[in-house]
């Protein structure tokens, strides 16, 4: 089972990861982050994550800190 870890304290809500995830597994959470916008969260109820690391590659904050495959 693949999954990612997001450090919500680092997320600046640029949403580049949301647009990049091929399975659309990253969504806005209901937590407001340091920029005043909703930070992202990982939602993978059906184990669809590929562990492709693309979200981590595009994240400018290194807020996606770990990816497991």
């Amino acid at each position: 089972m693949s999954y990612i870890k997001i450090d919500k304290d680092k997320c600046k809500s640029c949403y580049l990861c949301m647009e990049t995830c091929p399975k659309n597994l990253i969504k806005k959470s209901n937590i407001i982050g340091k920029t005043g916008e909703y930070v992202v969260e990982f939602q993978d109820n059906n184990n669809q994550c590929l562990g492709c690391t693309q979200c981590a590659i595009v994240c400018p904050e290194i807020a996606i800190t770990e990816v497991y495959r």
């Binding site: 990612i4 304290d9 680092k10 600046k12 809500s13 640029c14 920029t35 916008e37 562990g51 690391t53 981590a56 400018p60 904050e61 290194i62 996606i64 800190t65 770990e66 990816v67 497991y68 495959r69």
Partner: peptide, 18 residues
Amino acid sequence: VYSVPKSIKENSTFTFCP
């Protein structure tokens, strides 16, 4: 398969715009 690079300081946060 992915972790924070070791050459990045621990607990550092970028100060750039979103």
